[in-house]
């Protein structure tokens, strides 16, 4: 049990996910203190961080890393496409 929990690769992914979540939470609450960042850019940054987390879950946890190419294309393609489309809304509207 211990050996599984301490499995370095998976634990690193989990810790990275928690770290990115904390950074996103901090940015969302205290990001506005930096005068050089405006709300829109901060939101875009948060969206990118969110999709980074989604990509990590898809790639490492869902084992898409070891999936056949076509599945990889669908799943990770969706992550990229969805991220781009969400970001483009900021510019269109």
């Amino acid at each position: 049990m211990k050996s599984l929990i301490l499995d370095r690769n998976i634990m690193m992914v989990w810790l990275a996910l928690l770290a990115v979540s904390s950074v996103a939470w901090l940015l969302s609450n205290f990001g506005m203190v930096f005068e050089s960042i405006n709300g829109t850019h901060l939101s875009q940054l948060l969206v990118v961080l969110g999709y980074l987390k989604i990509w990590m879950v898809v790639h490492y946890f869902m084992e898409i890393k070891h999936a056949p190419r076509y599945l990889q294309l669908f799943c990770e393609g969706w992550v990229v496409l969805s991220c781009i489309s969400v970001l483009s809304i900021f510019y269109i509207l």
Partner: peptide
């Protein structure tokens, strides 16, 4: 991962 998306968009965006 769907929750991560919802959390980012609904809760975190500024």
């Amino acid at each position: 991962l769907l929750w991560i998306g919802l959390f980012t968009l609904i809760y975190l965006m500024v």
